[in-house]
Amino acid sequence: MHESSLLMKQSGQVPAGDVADSDTHPLQVKWLQPEDTALCARWDEFVLACPQATFFHRAGWLQIFRDVFRHTTHFLYAERAGAIEAVLPLAQIKSWLFGNSLISLPFAVYGGVAANNPAAAERLEIEAQVLARRLGVEHLELRNVKQRHADWPMQDLYVSFRKEILPEVEANMLAIPRKQRAMVRKGIKNGLSSHIDSTVDRFFALYADNVHRHGTPALPKRYFAELQKVFGADCEIMSVQDESGRVLSSVLSFYFRDEVLPYYAGDDVLARDMAANDFKYWELMRRSCERGLHVFDYGRSKQGTGSYSFKKNWGFEPQPLFYEYCLYKRDAIPQNNPSNAKYRYFIEAWRRMPIGLANRIGPLLVRNLG
């Protein structure tokens, strides 16, 4: 018997595959291995077809977490008669500074289980709880789009912003509220242009400088290069430059089904005066419209922040995210984010640190934030 199934029996929880089933084929829980390319392809086929799945359920994240961040991964899937019915990607972050946790999924706005049926979803969530106890983590975190456990503590700090991309380019321009539309037109009048980058170089220079000015560590440059390598055409960098060729703003976006997800971004100090940030997101929307995409996913923002207000100014309405926690060795959900007052002095000190030094030591810290 599998170790997790044995633990479940000892705790009084019986796995779905061990009870009578109307189907002659029992539901089995297995672990994805990155070297099994055929299985990874099957996993991704399921993710693309499952309405509950997101870009962050893709198999490629397993390789990124192992190779870039050196985190232990547990990508679980439920299978019946050779067909995948549910997936649950998990990664463990074990840090002396930020604690020991099991998350679906670190560095992702969405996560949790994606399933074709409730039985498979429940089976994987039970397995995740058993795994969390066996690993001795302080908490299990599932970054759900929809609420699944009303009795679990929930982090209500973040919301997401999603909106339909209209079929015609001009219709999308007119759908932007008047004041924000004026900023987009300002960027156009300033002669700005957008370009697709083949490397992460220009993007990373802006991104690293941007997060440094905000007092937070930058993710390693290698991480962004690996995203391009693993996800190929589904990970794209678009940069905005002025008429002299100076790059002012850049965004790294993910593509999933008929959606575009601008995910990481950076801006030069001159970007605001030139309306380069506004122009950037318009250009991404325009290009996405011309590609026939249907959803613009602006990602998550903390409530009450400048990012939150900026996205609302585009006519996007916030939608709640249900980050649910199962607590084991702590009494409350963690607050490892810049909004936590205890990080105020660290943020101020980080802003004053030379950027070269910050870029060298930052990845050692940020890998454990998730």
Rank of each mutant, 00 (worst) to 15 (best):
I165N: 10
S249F: 09
N190M: 14
K189P: 00
V240G: 01
E170M: 14
L157Q: 14
F161Q: 04
D201T: 15
P220H: 05
V211R: 03
E226T: 13
L248F: 09
R134K: 13
E164Q: 13
A150W: 07
D201Y: 09
D197S: 09
E168Y: 06
M154H: 11
C235E: 00
E141P: 09
E243N: 14
L192Q: 05
K189R: 15
R148Y: 09
R213Q: 12
L219G: 04
R202I: 05
L140D: 13
G245M: 06
K179A: 10
S250N: 02
E243S: 15
E138M: 10
N210L: 06
I165V: 14
M173P: 02
P177E: 03
W152V: 09
V211Y: 00
M173L: 15
S160L: 03
L227V: 14
Q180P: 01
R178C: 01
S193C: 07
F161E: 03
E236T: 15
F231N: 02
S250Y: 04
L140C: 11
A175N: 12
G215R: 00
G215I: 04
F224Q: 03
R134Q: 14
N210R: 05
A132E: 03
L157A: 13
S250D: 05
R181W: 12
Y207S: 05
L166Q: 11
P167Q: 05
Y223E: 02
H212W: 08
N190W: 10
L142F: 10
S160I: 10
L135P: 05
T216C: 04
S194I: 06
L219Y: 11
H212S: 06
T216F: 02
S249T: 13
R185P: 01
L157Y: 07
A225N: 15
C235I: 08
R213P: 00
G191L: 03
H212F: 02
Q155I: 06
L142C: 10
L248V: 13
A205T: 12
V184Q: 02
L140G: 10
G215H: 01
C235H: 00
S194D: 02
A175W: 01
Q147F: 08
M154L: 13
D197R: 10
A182Y: 15
A171L: 13
Q180M: 11
L219K: 08
I188A: 06
G187H: 08
G245V: 04
P177L: 04
H195E: 14
D234A: 14
E236Y: 09
E170Q: 14
M154K: 13
R143F: 02
N210P: 00
L174W: 01
V137T: 12
R143G: 02
R178F: 05
I196T: 14
G232L: 03
F204T: 05
L140P: 12
M154Y: 01
K186N: 08
L142T: 09
K146A: 15
L248T: 10
K221H: 15
D242L: 07
R222S: 11
E243L: 12
V247Q: 08
